[in-house]
Design a binder for these strands. Sequence first.
DNA 1: GGTTCCTCGTGAAACGGTTCATAATGTAGC
DNA 2: GCTACATTATGAACCGTTTCACGAGGAACC
Lengths: 341, 341
Amino acid sequence: MTQPAAHRRASIADVARAAGVSVGTVSNVLNRPERVLPGTRERVEAAIEELSFVRNGSARQLRAGTITTIGAIVLDIANPFFTDVARGIEERLDRDDFTLMVASSDDDPDREQRYLRLFEEHGVQGVMVVPATNNIEHLLAVRRRGTGVVLLDQPSSDPSISSVAVDDVRGGELAAHHLLDEGHTRIVFLNGPHTIRQCADRHEGVVKALAAAGLDPATALVEITVTSLNAEGGEAAIRGLLESGDRPTAVFCVNDLVALGVLRTLRTENIAVPTDMAVVGYDDVAFAAELSTPLTSVRQPTHELGVRAADLLLSGPDSAAEHVMFQPTLVVRGSSSTVAG
Amino acid sequence: MTQPAAHRRASIADVARAAGVSVGTVSNVLNRPERVLPGTRERVEAAIEELSFVRNGSARQLRAGTITTIGAIVLDIANPFFTDVARGIEERLDRDDFTLMVASSDDDPDREQRYLRLFEEHGVQGVMVVPATNNIEHLLAVRRRGTGVVLLDQPSSDPSISSVAVDDVRGGELAAHHLLDEGHTRIVFLNGPHTIRQCADRHEGVVKALAAAGLDPATALVEITVTSLNAEGGEAAIRGLLESGDRPTAVFCVNDLVALGVLRTLRTENIAVPTDMAVVGYDDVAFAAELSTPLTSVRQPTHELGVRAADLLLSGPDSAAEHVMFQPTLVVRGSSSTVAG
DNA sequence: GGTTCCTCGTGAAACGGTTCATAATGTAGC
DNA sequence: GCTACATTATGAACCGTTTCACGAGGAACC
């Protein structure tokens, strides 16, 4: 029979007492059972069962030092891009029996800091971060104090911190270049705040493409900052745009969720895509190809991104920092081109 | 200037020595700064900075006992359903300054157990679990040992464990009933394994609807177990079905990702939806309405689910267990009905 | 029978914080 | 000048593990 709910959790000492052995022996049963005589071991195991003993992880870790956990802090856990990356991380971590904890900063530097601190104080082996700002001073500090740090989806501005990223300038360029090729001369870019590096870079890419085409970004580019990087943000932004009477012929969205919101709105407003308005997204999430107007999007190697990031973190704190940069590709579909499949 | 990378992290004792005070004073600066004279405090703070001291969370927790973190274990972190729920949890937790850690069991009971153990050993205040099996013995044990447990998306079979769920029998019934209404007399159900309770329940609902319509489930229902609960699983299942020459007129998918795989395949195979084949999904994820054939789906109140779950966990271990059951609704769209909007 | 070696088990010393009874110092009141 | 009382700072006890030097008891060998 089980005990009535005891107020204090049973400790190793309680188990030792119940089994009539010393604490050292209980610890051995837990960690190196082969060093304990089968009879003794059984008695200890019975006591553990009886007292429903659970190791105190804090004490264990305090004494033993290490823990095989790594933390990941992403901007938005509901964004398929990040969860695809997380799957990649998990896959790699599993091979080494590491454990992954995911937290979401919600683009908020304070939340990022809070989770970072939590992970660090609890001695995770390393942490992967998609920084909410382009100031990574606090991450450098973490790194200096001995916790592994890998920047996710963000090229490192510091040689001592590894990073795994995708060329966002190139991504913005690909998207804009494509829209210009399709004959558009003015692009509306529904972007996130430039404090998010990806957003700033994609913007830079767009400007670059416009300049290369001999257009003046000051007139050929309208950048609108969405309130949130999801479908609701996209819907609100495009709605505001339409209500202002300024109807562009081409919209580039900083991610596919925003594009989803745009497409949804255009459909209810009976604006034809791509003939009245072309739309390009970013991330090429799973459903992009299956939308009513298949979405042209910039594809990033999400899974591979996660795997490489985990690789770098597991390679240990002593190996040199590496900076991996993947290249995005443009997948043209019906939302931006009448000739696309 | 910063120190050369020290091998051992600075401890409170190091700080105390550097600042010329006792460890108790350092602890006070950290936890009750108002009890320390400004001058002393500044000296301690300078030493903390100088040594780049970080509290050892394990030691702190070992002594102090509590931690304001709660853990969540979901089946698949890449499934929008779970991440939407997670957003709800986070929103509620934020109000009480709690912190959320998410882990993914990948439908694997061993992984679930591993993460559960990790959370429990590290003394989280509570844990929310979408169980990978319908055996919740291990969760009961966790509960008995004093850690809060709330079943997520799973009605509790035990009165002592709170749960927040959506009526999946009803959901299956809604879907099947709708397909029967549309004139179909045989339904293929692409389901997950019945060890996952949601899958078993939705199956039960389908059977119930068939029986109510006077059909024999043995002939009117074909259940196929997908290899994975995502687009790839759906694609593989429907492809196998088509190759076997058994082409049904109605397919019900256990979630929208599976349905996405099905729609994708049907499109490449030039099978018209819904005229040649009707498709119904589950979860009503954000993109369901925007697909090339808008997907009929069973909607669940994901966000609210998360909020309520967090509510229950925060209400403390002493309050009575509660069992919240939400009702799903059917959203009819073009993938299953020619008259739908 | 004495030495060496093994196998098991012991118990105390860390690990790095928090907490609390106590001391030291200063200030006020009489 | 003495008591009473804040205000600050101290340092040791404690949280629950792991680890390790050590001892007890046999077995094996010469």
